[in-house]
């Protein structure tokens, strides 16, 4: 097994507020890591650093063998990102959106790849419809399609279930599982514990700018994610008071 993501001693400040405090994080190839934590713990900030959109004040990030930010272009080529915003153009159709991003990533057989992806996310019939007419769930499915258009090794997802109803979330999970089993490494932030419990292979808890706990899915007792999460958070809070 090789390490696909390595981040060591990451410090990120916003003004004088330190959001990430010497955070260490690594992911093996093929892992599906759920990144948990309370609001404001720095999950989004950390994911933006991994996705090359933001630079840490201190620390080293290595993805798929390339170092950020010096080899940003190579990292970006290996990386697919889904945020809670779809990153799609409302005035373009599903097909045109994918086509645009395929061009940006220099995808070779564009039309074939686009059909393949539309089929996978179940939007073949709506391919010519404008994205602004899509429901939130459809937009998010297309966003996942967009993020894997260039067949990236690593997939980063930031709260992809935000604003989705039960059905849409289930459909998204189905696609996610399929994407993950194609040999990709996945990191996903979430605060929906029951939902990620069935998806991920490892759970990391982020609190106060550091990873406070990590557990493999195989080590987790049934329905034990919630108690694991709470014990990590509580432990941390007790430590604060002393």
């Amino acid at each position: 097994m090789t390490e696909v993501i390595t981040a060591s001693t990451i410090i990120k400040r916003f003004g004088h507020k330190q959001v990430l405090r010497k955070l260490d994080f690594s992911v093996q190839q093929g892992e599906f890591v759920a990144f948990l934590g309370p609001n404001g713990a720095g999950k989004t900030t950390f994911l933006r650093i991994l996705s090359s959109l933001s630079k840490p004040n201190y620390g080293i990030v290595k993805i798929a063998g390339f170092v950020l930010p010096t080899q940003a272009a190579s990292v970006r080529q290996k990386l697919g990102v889904v945020s809670h915003q779809p990153l799609l153009y409302g005035d373009l159709s599903a097909e045109e959106n994918l086509n645009f991003y395929a061009k940006l990533y220099g995808v070779i057989d564009r039309s074939e790849r686009i059909s393949q992806i539309l089929k996978m996310v179940g939007l073949e019939k709506r391919r010519r419809d404008l994205v602004r007419t899509f429901s939130r769930g459809m937009q998010q499915r297309l966003a996942i399609g967009r993020s894997i258009i260039h067949d990236p090794e690593v997939l980063l997802l930031d709260e992809p279930h935000t604003g989705l109803d039960q059905d849409a979330s289930n459909m998204l999970d189905e696609i996610l599982t399929r994407v993950a089993t194609q040999g990709r490494t996945v990191v996903m932030t979430s605060h929906d514990l029951p939902r990620v419990a069935n998806l991920a292979s490892r759970f990391d808890v982020l609190a106060r700018g550091k990873i406070m706990g990590s557990i493999q899915a195989s080590d987790l007792p049934k329905h034990g994610l919630l108690s694991f999460y709470e014990s990590v958070i509580n432990q941390n809070e007790v430590k604060n008071e002393i």
């Binding site: 190579s74 990386l79 945020s83």
Partner: peptide, 8 residues
């Protein structure tokens, strides 16, 4: 962000 994520 989508534009900036692309290797361009």
């Amino acid at each position: 962000d989508g534009l900036l994520l692309a290797p361009v």
